[in-house]
Protein backbone atom coordinates (compact mmCIF):
# COMPACT_ATOMS: atom_id res chain seq x y z
CA UNK A 1 0.00 0.00 0.00
CA UNK A 2 3.03 2.25 -0.22
CA UNK A 3 1.62 3.81 -3.39
CA UNK A 4 -1.75 4.72 -1.81
CA UNK A 5 0.08 6.23 1.14
CA UNK A 6 2.34 8.22 -1.19
CA UNK A 7 -0.69 9.61 -3.04
CA UNK A 8 -2.32 10.65 0.22
CA UNK A 9 0.86 12.20 1.53
CA UNK A 10 1.41 14.19 -1.67
CA UNK A 11 -1.94 15.95 -1.19
CA UNK A 12 -4.50 13.28 -2.09
CA UNK A 13 -5.66 12.89 1.49
CA UNK A 14 -9.31 12.58 0.38
CA UNK A 15 -8.53 9.35 -1.52
CA UNK A 16 -9.95 7.06 1.18
CA UNK A 17 -13.27 8.92 1.26
CA UNK A 18 -14.32 7.36 -2.04
CA UNK A 19 -17.01 4.68 -1.60
CA UNK A 20 -17.11 3.74 -5.28
CA UNK A 21 -20.56 5.08 -6.21
CA UNK A 22 -19.43 5.84 -9.78
CA UNK A 23 -20.95 9.33 -10.02
CA UNK A 24 -17.55 10.50 -11.31
CA UNK A 25 -17.49 8.02 -14.19
CA UNK A 26 -21.10 8.83 -15.08
CA UNK A 27 -20.27 12.56 -15.17
CA UNK A 28 -17.07 12.26 -17.18
CA UNK A 29 -17.17 13.57 -20.78
CA UNK A 30 -13.92 11.75 -21.53
CA UNK A 31 -15.16 8.38 -20.24
CA UNK A 32 -18.17 8.67 -22.58
CA UNK A 33 -15.84 8.04 -25.51
CA UNK A 34 -12.75 6.33 -24.08
CA UNK A 35 -11.72 3.53 -21.74
CA UNK A 36 -11.00 6.06 -18.99
CA UNK A 37 -13.04 5.13 -15.89
CA UNK A 38 -12.60 7.67 -13.13
CA UNK A 39 -14.05 5.42 -10.41
CA UNK A 40 -11.74 2.60 -11.45
CA UNK A 41 -8.56 4.68 -11.42
CA UNK A 42 -9.43 5.96 -7.93
CA UNK A 43 -10.07 2.36 -6.77
CA UNK A 44 -6.74 1.23 -8.20
CA UNK A 45 -5.03 4.05 -6.32
CA UNK A 46 -6.76 3.01 -3.08
CA UNK A 47 -5.55 -0.56 -3.61
CA UNK A 48 -2.01 0.62 -4.28
CA UNK A 49 -1.84 -0.75 -7.85
CA UNK A 50 1.00 1.58 -8.73
CA UNK A 51 2.06 0.27 -12.13
CA UNK A 52 -1.49 -0.17 -13.38
CA UNK A 53 -2.16 3.48 -12.65
CA UNK A 54 1.13 5.10 -13.55
CA UNK A 55 1.63 3.25 -16.83
CA UNK A 56 -1.92 3.70 -18.09
CA UNK A 57 -2.69 6.03 -20.96
CA UNK A 58 -6.11 6.62 -19.35
CA UNK A 59 -4.41 8.69 -16.65
CA UNK A 60 -3.81 11.26 -19.42
CA UNK A 61 -7.38 11.30 -20.78
CA UNK A 62 -8.77 13.63 -18.08
CA UNK A 63 -9.28 17.21 -19.34
CA UNK A 64 -9.53 18.46 -15.72
CA UNK A 65 -13.09 19.71 -16.33
CA UNK A 66 -14.07 19.11 -12.67
CA UNK A 67 -17.51 17.65 -13.53
CA UNK A 68 -16.70 14.72 -11.23
CA UNK A 69 -15.47 16.95 -8.43
CA UNK A 70 -18.65 19.05 -8.59
CA UNK A 71 -20.83 15.95 -8.20
CA UNK A 72 -18.79 13.72 -5.88
CA UNK A 73 -20.95 13.07 -2.79
CA UNK A 74 -17.80 12.38 -0.75
CA UNK A 75 -15.92 15.51 -1.84
CA UNK A 76 -12.96 13.53 -3.09
CA UNK A 77 -10.48 15.89 -4.77
CA UNK A 78 -10.43 13.69 -7.86
CA UNK A 79 -8.69 16.12 -10.24
CA UNK A 80 -5.98 16.94 -7.69
CA UNK A 81 -5.38 13.21 -7.19
CA UNK A 82 -5.14 12.55 -10.93
CA UNK A 83 -2.70 15.44 -11.37
CA UNK A 84 -0.43 14.29 -8.59
CA UNK A 85 -0.45 10.73 -9.94
CA UNK A 86 0.58 12.22 -13.30
CA UNK A 87 3.51 13.86 -11.49
CA UNK A 88 4.51 10.40 -10.28
CA UNK A 89 4.08 8.98 -13.77
CA UNK A 90 6.33 11.71 -15.22
CA UNK A 91 8.92 11.01 -12.52
CA UNK A 92 8.88 7.39 -13.70
CA UNK A 93 9.69 8.59 -17.22
CA UNK A 94 6.24 8.66 -18.83
CA UNK A 95 6.27 11.87 -20.82
CA UNK A 96 4.70 12.46 -24.26
CA UNK A 97 6.94 14.08 -26.89
CA UNK A 98 4.28 16.74 -27.51
CA UNK A 99 4.38 17.62 -23.83
CA UNK A 100 8.18 17.82 -23.81
CA UNK A 101 7.91 20.36 -26.64
CA UNK A 102 5.66 22.55 -24.50
CA UNK A 103 8.19 22.33 -21.68
CA UNK A 104 10.97 23.26 -24.10
CA UNK A 105 9.04 26.29 -25.28
CA UNK A 106 8.54 27.40 -21.70
CA UNK A 107 12.30 27.17 -21.14
CA UNK A 108 12.88 29.15 -24.35
CA UNK A 109 10.39 32.05 -24.19
CA UNK A 110 8.31 31.55 -21.04
CA UNK A 111 5.20 30.67 -23.04
CA UNK A 112 3.51 27.42 -24.04
CA UNK A 113 3.27 28.33 -27.74
CA UNK A 114 5.94 29.53 -30.20
CA UNK A 115 5.99 33.14 -31.36
CA UNK A 116 7.03 34.17 -34.86
CA UNK A 117 7.50 37.18 -37.11
CA UNK A 118 4.00 36.98 -38.62
CA UNK A 119 2.41 37.40 -35.22
CA UNK A 120 4.75 40.27 -34.33
CA UNK A 121 3.66 41.99 -37.52
CA UNK A 122 -0.03 41.43 -36.81
CA UNK A 123 0.41 42.80 -33.27
CA UNK A 124 2.17 45.92 -34.61
CA UNK A 125 -0.50 46.48 -37.25
CA UNK A 126 -3.15 46.44 -34.52
CA UNK A 127 -1.32 49.09 -32.50
CA UNK A 128 0.03 46.63 -29.92
CA UNK A 129 3.75 46.42 -29.09
CA UNK A 130 5.37 43.74 -31.31
CA UNK A 131 6.43 41.85 -28.18
CA UNK A 132 3.89 41.60 -25.35
CA UNK A 133 5.14 42.97 -21.99
CA UNK A 134 5.84 39.44 -20.71
CA UNK A 135 8.96 37.26 -20.71
CA UNK A 136 8.70 37.29 -24.50
CA UNK A 137 11.37 39.74 -25.62
CA UNK A 138 12.45 40.46 -22.02
CA UNK A 139 15.72 38.58 -21.53
CA UNK A 140 16.13 39.43 -17.85
CA UNK A 141 12.64 38.12 -17.04
CA UNK A 142 13.22 34.98 -19.11
CA UNK A 143 16.57 34.37 -17.39
CA UNK A 144 14.80 34.61 -14.03
CA UNK A 145 12.18 32.15 -15.18
CA UNK A 146 14.81 29.65 -16.34
CA UNK A 147 16.65 30.06 -13.04
CA UNK A 148 13.47 28.96 -11.21
CA UNK A 149 12.95 26.00 -13.56
CA UNK A 150 16.56 24.87 -13.05
CA UNK A 151 16.13 25.16 -9.29
CA UNK A 152 13.06 22.88 -9.35
CA UNK A 153 14.70 20.48 -11.81
CA UNK A 154 12.14 21.17 -14.52
CA UNK A 155 14.82 21.50 -17.22
CA UNK A 156 16.08 17.98 -16.49
CA UNK A 157 12.54 16.62 -16.26
CA UNK A 158 11.92 17.89 -19.81
CA UNK A 159 14.87 15.86 -21.02
CA UNK A 160 17.47 18.57 -20.77
CA UNK A 161 15.98 20.61 -23.61
Amino acid sequence: MAFAEAVKKAGGDTLDLCYQCGTCTASCPSGRRTSFRTRQIIRKAQLGLKDEVLKSEELWMCTTCYSCVERCPREVEIVDIILLMRNMSVQAGNMAEAHKKIGANLLKIGATVPFGEDMKKLRSNMGLPANPPTTVGNQKAQDDLVKIMKKTGFDKLMGGN
Binding site: G110, A111, T112, T135, K140, I148, F154
Partner: peptide, 18 residues
Protein backbone atom coordinates in the same frame (compact mmCIF):
# COMPACT_ATOMS: atom_id res chain seq x y z
CA UNK B 1 7.96 40.33 -17.16
CA UNK B 2 5.07 38.02 -16.24
CA UNK B 3 5.20 34.60 -17.92
CA UNK B 4 2.96 31.62 -18.63
CA UNK B 5 0.52 31.17 -15.71
CA UNK B 6 1.86 28.22 -15.87
CA UNK B 7 -0.55 26.11 -17.91
CA UNK B 8 -2.56 23.98 -15.45
CA UNK B 9 -3.09 20.91 -17.62
CA UNK B 10 0.51 20.50 -18.63
CA UNK B 11 2.91 22.07 -16.12
CA UNK B 12 0.82 21.04 -13.10
CA UNK B 13 0.56 17.52 -14.58
CA UNK B 14 4.37 17.36 -14.90
CA UNK B 15 5.60 18.80 -11.64
CA UNK B 16 3.65 20.53 -8.89
CA UNK B 17 6.71 22.24 -7.38
CA UNK B 18 7.51 23.95 -10.71
Amino acid sequence: GAACCPAPGVVRSFDEAT
